[in-house]
Each structure stands twice: as C-alpha cells, then as structure tokens.
Design a protein around this nucleic acid. Structure first.
Length: 318
DNA sequence: AAGCTCATCAACCGCAGCCGT
DNA sequence: GACGGCTGCGGTTGATGAGCT
C-alpha cells in the first residue's frame, strides 16, 4: 500500500499561478488567516491543492516578503548561516527577514555554491593567476561554467566507494570518456555525501590514493571561504601540491597524525563508529601553500549534511 | 535568425515530524 | 504505543528567458 497523496490531484490545477488565483488566495487568508491548508482551497474556491496554496502564500504572496535581489550583506549572512546550519534553509531564512527558504535555497544553488565550483587549475603548471574577486560575480558569464546538472552528473562518478575513507581514491576504472568529461569541467565540485559511506579503514596508504585526486569533506568547504575572500591565487604556487612525491609525503604525514590524534585503535571502535576527514586548513606563508588535514571525532557517517569538495586536474581552466 | 545552452525562479514531490485520537 | 492527518522542509523538476554560436 503506497503512501496516500497529500490531496486529491484529479481536477486540480498545477503550474504557474494566475493573478486571479493570487487574488483569491490573498483575500481568503486576509479574512480567515493562515493555516488549515488542506481545507483552504475548497473553502476559498481554488482548484489547487493545499500544499500548493501554502507554498504560494509563503514564498510569494505574504506581505512581509522583501522583494529584489539579495544584497551583498545578505549573501555574507547566508554563507555564514550555511556554515552553521548546512542546508537547513528554513533555519537560515529565519535569520533573514523577508526572505524565504525557497529563495535562499535557489540563491545558494544558483550562485553562492558555484563560487566553489571554479577554483584553480594546476595540471599544466602554467603561471596563471586567478583573481578570486572574479569568482564572486559571474552572473553574466556563460561559457565554461558548470551547471548544477553537469555538476550532479559528474558527482555521480565521484561517490565514495566502500572500504575507503574520505580520502578515497578515485576509481581507476573510470573510462576515458568520463575522464575527459571531468577534465572539461571545473576542478572543484561540492557534493552531498548523504548517500555515501565512510568506512573504518584508518590505514589509508598512499598507494590507495590516486594523487591529484583529493576530496575534502565538510569543514573543508568552510575553509575554502578563506580562499574566496582572499586575494588572487597564483596557480603556479598551488601547483606545488601536485608534486607527486610531496603529496605522497604529505599524505603519509596525515596518516601518522591521524593515528596520533585518535587514541583508540580501529579495532577498539564500535561498529557504528566511522573515521572521517572533516577539516582542511589552507595557509599561505610567503611563498608556499600549506594544507593541513585533521581528523576529529568519529561517527561522521551519521551526519546528514556533510559536504564534500573534490579537486581534480583541469587542463582547460581557467 | 535559429537553435542551443544555461541560469534563474517558481512550483512540485516525497519524506519526516508533530499532534490528536 | 499505534495510527492517521496535517504541516513543514529539503531536494528536485520544469518553464522561461537571456546569452552564445
């Protein structure tokens, strides 16, 4: 027995609301107040389902809504609140008077999240500087941009595989077409790890990691803001991260630090506990980029809103 | 000018939580 | 505690228009 529909859909109108419908809804709510959404359409004489009425009212017709573009201040607020709350859009919206969760969600998906899609290129180790300021306002830019659909498509290729941890290796069986697709894409993608699994394997070895394919989870995203708010990134400097030997050494150090920081051995952990990389710090000291991971806590697999930032080589961008 | 791609926004869908019975 | 209805939330889809080739 399937779930019963929220409303009787037969005969109900769908799609865009007309001005007449808006007027009817406004008048009804002004007279009778919000609530009782299920019975509202019938009482008001609207051929809409209750949920549709509620959404229309909350997202569009409510009198206290702020119109117009989201300001820079609101942008900053959203970014900060997203750090704190993740994708809890209603929570974020509650801190932004006149803005709805839907509006903020759309804004985030279409603009703010994209700031981290495009990042830096390093495969060719060419001396190209990337002005981060240009990442902020790309509204007019068309070419070379990664749409959500494209990003989603590529993300499907980058799910966690079982028996790896968050610094899992990229599938070596990925076919060349996928490789090509990915290299045509931006070199950073944010992906939701909700369906992903993070596993117990603390003993990640450098052999298990395909170099230049690194994934950072959750807090990594926060620290990316440091990049975004900073000055231009010289990809020639960043390219030092792609030195295989250096990265191997770097990862080996991570592993050692990881073991040090976690007093208990893997064997002592309960089944439900998971090890996860959840912090990435990036510092720039005069002439060198330093990156530091930390593993804090366990049970990360229970987190619903983990975000993962993936870097890969991009020979075409910028 | 036509066709294509993509960004944006509005709306829909399914699920989970709350609450009353 | 079980059940069902209602509501709210977050993810996703679809329509539309603008920009690009």
């Amino acid at each position: 027995m399937g779930r019963s529909p929220c409303c009787e859909k037969v005969g109900l109108k769908r799609g865009r609301w007309t001005a007449e419908e808006d007027e009817i809804l406004i008048k009804y709510i002004q007279s009778n107040g919000e609530g009782s959404w299920k019975s509202l359409p019938k009482n008001a004489g609207l051929l809409r389902c209750g949920k549709s009425c509620r959404l229309r009212w909350i997202n569009y017709l409510r009198g206290d809504l702020k119109r117009g573009n989201i300001t820079d201040e609101e942008d900053e607020m959203i970014v900060m609140l997203h750090k704190a709350f993740g994708n809890r859009w209603s929570m974020i919206a509650s801190h932004l008077p006149g803005r709805t969760d839907n509006e903020i969600k759309n804004h985030w998906n279409s603009r703010l999240s994209r700031q981290t899609y495009r990042f830096f290129s390093n495969k060719n180790k060419t001396k190209t500087s990337l002005d981060i300021a240009t990442l902020v306002d790309q509204k007019k830019r068309r070419g070379g941009r990664v749409s959500r659909n494209v990003a989603k498509k590529y993300n499907q290729n980058t799910r966690f595989s079982k028996n790896t941890m968050s610094t899992t290796k990229r599938s070596t069986t990925m076919d060349k077409q996928d490789d090509q697709n990915m290299s045509d894409c931006s070199n950073i993608v944010i992906k939701d790890t909700k369906e992903s699994q993070v596993h117990d394997n603390i003993n990640v070895t450098c052999e298990e990691l395909e170099l230049n394919w690194l994934e950072f989870q959750d807090d990594g995203l926060l620290d990316m803001d440091g990049f975004l708010q900073g000055e231009a990134i010289d990809s020639n400097v960043v390219s030092s991260m792609n030195d295989d030997d250096e990265i191997e050494q770097w990862l080996a150090e991570i592993e050692v630090e990881n073991i040090k920081k976690n007093e208990r051995s893997v064997d002592e952990k309960e089944d439900h506990e998971r090890l996860s990389l959840n912090s990435l710090e990036v510092c720039y000291n005069e002439s060198k980029w330093d990156m530091e991971f930390s593993f804090t806590g366990f049970d990360m697999c229970d987190e619903e809103d983990n975000m993962l930032v993936s870097l890969w080589e991009d020979s075409n961008y910028p």
